[in-house]
Design a protein around this nucleic acid. Structure first.
Length: 476
DNA sequence: AAAAAAT
């Protein structure tokens, strides 16, 4: 195995050989049971750079972190965690111990980043102070809700209060001026709502000790939520310059990386992963050459659905709201039970679709990139890219450019915390071909081809991905 | 040529 080149910092935490993943012990069919023997997911090659001589010892156990008994109970009893994952072991000492420096942290999809900042928030809140002391901002409604749920579960025994700041459907919303001020000690939400609440003084930020941006590269990207995020940051800085800022994501492209480093305080700590090390080895990637747009649907129903039935849940990603509707309709017309989600502002409907999927009532979910990032559903073993994500910023090039970050995040919906998974990229013209090979080059991964109409190929692929044992046993 | 939030 190649030794990761870790030279650019004296305080680099070098890769130690991980105990090999006991993935074989993971049984895909045991839907709800948390797999016992999953060990560290693949965030082995994180490079840590601390800003000065503050020595940070990575934490082998949660006990070493001086967490309250209530929080430990949350980790062991509610979350059923045993020990910190790699990113948790490295980042938690930096987050929890004085001098509480800002932190930019990159780690693989599904490696446990949420736990890092949720623990950070929960342990920095003074339970006896009834004011908002921790704030977390997320790019989508779904992610804000999910993070709030994680925080409530993990913090169940702490008595710390929380509030999820996402838009409600307008008919049952109360005018802000009339509404109550937020007293919750932790607030998690989306940028628009948080910005609004701060400006109407519904949300006070003067007592904040910790500010988190989840999916921070998107939150601070030019074509993302940069303006909102910066305004919120400045507003907080005005009253509270010592507030610790945490930026978490699985992806930071060079442009955003450069910018975010200038956004936080100079003496911040940072953890990064090389892009070639960022793909999840446990999730196998495939491409299928489809003769035309229509045959993509055939491939989905005739091969992937037929074989995929026993391999867990599936998310099909599409590029536009329109194609989400279109694909949903076609598959339903053919008698398949699928649901779809996109960002059109029917919040209640979105919540319902997600809940049904989480409860396992639906097996296949069609989604726009609203769920590309962060969505954590461990039963998802199969991701289908109905079309590949494209960047829309490069006006100066005539060539289509894949959105590498979104691609990686989509793939990361499978293979949560080291689980096995497979991705099928449906491609049908030269443009797709080029996008695909650019993605392969970018991440240094190999995407093997599955022939459009070969059941054997699909079977072999799912088998190689480790998803088909259950199926083959059923057919024995 | 898009999606996300939200005014």
């Amino acid at each position: 195995m190649a030794e990761p080149a870790v030279t650019d910092a004296d305080k680099t935490i070098t890769t130690t050989t991980l105990p090999s993943l006991n993935i074989d012990e993971l049984s895909i069919d045991e839907n709800k049971k948390p797999p016992k023997l999953l060990d560290d997911p693949e965030d082995s090659n994180i490079q840590a750079v601390s800003s000065d001589d503050t020595p940070y010892t990575s934490a082998a156990t949660f006990e070493e972190l001086n967490l309250s008994a209530e929080l430990l109970k949350g980790l062991y009893v509610e979350m059923k965690f045993q020990k910190p994952s790699k990113i948790q072991a490295i980042s938690l000492p930096m987050i929890l111990n004085p001098p509480h420096r800002d932190l930019i942290a990159q780690a693989h999809n599904g490696s446990g980043k949420t736990t890092c900042f949720v623990l950070g928030m929960l342990s920095r809140v003074d339970p006896s102070t009834q004011a908002t002391q921790a704030l977390c901002i997320c790019p989508t409604r779904e992610l804000a809700i999910q993070n709030t749920e994680v925080l409530r579960k993990m913090g169940k025994h702490t008595g710390i209060s929380s509030h999820c700041a996402v838009p409600t459907d307008s008919r049952d919303s109360i005018p802000i001026q009339k509404g109550e001020k937020i007293k919750a000690q932790v607030v998690i939400g989306t940028p628009g709502t948080i910005k609004k609440w701060i400006s109407f003084k519904k949300l006070e930020v003067t007592k904040l000790t910790i500010l988190v941006f989840d999916e921070a590269d998107q939150m601070l990207a030019e074509d993302g939520f940069k303006d909102d995020s910066l305004r919120i940051m400045k507003e907080i800085e005005k009253s509270n310059s010592s507030c610790q800022v945490l930026l978490f994501s699985a992806t930071f492209n060079d442009i955003v990386k450069n910018f975010v480093e200038r956004t936080v305080k100079k003496d911040h700590n940072k953890l990064f992963v090389k892009k070639e090390e960022l793909s999840l080895d446990a999730v196998k990637q495939y491409k299928v050459q489809c003769t035309d747009e229509l045959s993509k649907i055939e491939v989905i129903k005739d091969y992937i659905f037929e074989l995929g039935e026993n391999v867990g849940q599936t998310i099909i990603f599409v590029r536009t709201r329109q194609s989400a509707k279109m694909l949903h309709k076609s598959l339903v017309n053919m008698g398949y039970e699928v649901t779809s989600i996109q960002g059109a502002p029917d919040h209640e409907e979105r919540d319902k679709i997600v809940k049904e999927f989480r409860d396992g009532l639906t097996q296949v979910l069609i989604s726009t990139d609203v769920l590309a990032r962060g969505f954590d559903q461990q039963q998802v073993n199969l991701v289908i890219n109905y079309d590949l994500p494209i960047k829309h910023t490069a006006e100066y090039t005539r060539e289509f450019e894949p959105d590498y970050e979104v691609y990686l995040h989509r793939v990361g919906r499978a293979g949560r915390f080291g689980r096995k998974g497979a991705v099928f990229n449906l491609i049908h013209d030269e443009k797709d071909e080029r996008l695909m090979s650019k993605i392969e080059n970018h991440f240094g991964t190999r995407v093997s081809e599955v022939r459009e109409k070969s059941v054997e190929d699909y079977k072999a692929a799912l088998k190689e991905a480790g998803l088909l044992q259950a199926y083959s046993e059923l057919n024995r």
